[in-house]
Design a protein around this nucleic acid. Sequence first.
DNA 1: GTTGAAATTTGAACTGT
DNA 2: ACAGTTCAAATTTCAAC
Lengths: 155, 155
Amino acid sequence: MDEIDRNIAIALQQDGSAGLAELAKVSGLSVSATAERVKRLEERGVVRSWRADLDPAQVGCPLLGFVFVALRPGRDDAAFRRAMSRHEHVLECHRITGPWHFLLKLRVADLAALEAFLDEELRAQPSVERLESLIAIATEKETALLPVAPATEEE
Amino acid sequence: MDEIDRNIAIALQQDGSAGLAELAKVSGLSVSATAERVKRLEERGVVRSWRADLDPAQVGCPLLGFVFVALRPGRDDAAFRRAMSRHEHVLECHRITGPWHFLLKLRVADLAALEAFLDEELRAQPSVERLESLIAIATEKETALLPVAPATEEE
DNA sequence: GTTGAAATTTGAACTGT
DNA sequence: ACAGTTCAAATTTCAAC
């Protein structure tokens, strides 16, 4: 992961449809060397996948919510974790510091769908003790573009 | 946005490198008709961009944090919003319901970087009144795959 | 890592239904 | 709006440097 790899990764993150010719300019290498780099980035798992970024509103999930979850003490949380991982409306599920145990990020169609999720999926979990939810009124920024750090050690 | 468009959108969301031939199988249409559909999805903004999904740990931002922000009453928040939009470590910035005004999602290298962000970027903002931050101990799930709703009205 | 060329595949356009 | 062919372009692989 040297400077060249980082530049390629940054470019691919912004535009996954960039051609090798374009990437070659960014990297300063030849086209074939650039192709090698891209392949290696995939092999090493730096590039996990290629995806189309969709507009949430246009695919029917305009409502964004966050839910804090506290689980009952001494209760196995495996079932809860599995349920969250499976559920397509749960975009994120993090074990967090602070008074709560988990923080969920949700995408749903509307408030009715949020209510249904809270009642039928979360409160239905035996290990769930307490919930606190909030919704986004507006989104100033929502990106998946990661800050790529300016090189530390291993190349 | 009929059933066919939805199937294509779902496929592209999971694998943006899928070729038209593969998509044609999914959609049940010919390759050329599928190409038309994809082009229209881009034109309508359903597909916003094509991106490589990178591994946060491997690009040097393994630490995930959330920060609640309360702004001073009667203070213009434009500068704050602009600063958050610009900052690459701020992945998300939502105006939210509840006692806080904004919720930020951050990606940084380590706790030192988080501290620096809190001190130099957030507390430095004149409009910021109070902060509360938490970090992810572990991430059970973190996906950008949106739940694509099963068709409502307009085709 | 570079260059250059061949083989394969892909996306883009045209034509007709 | 869709299907089938054709055409151009980009990716992949390979050679030799």
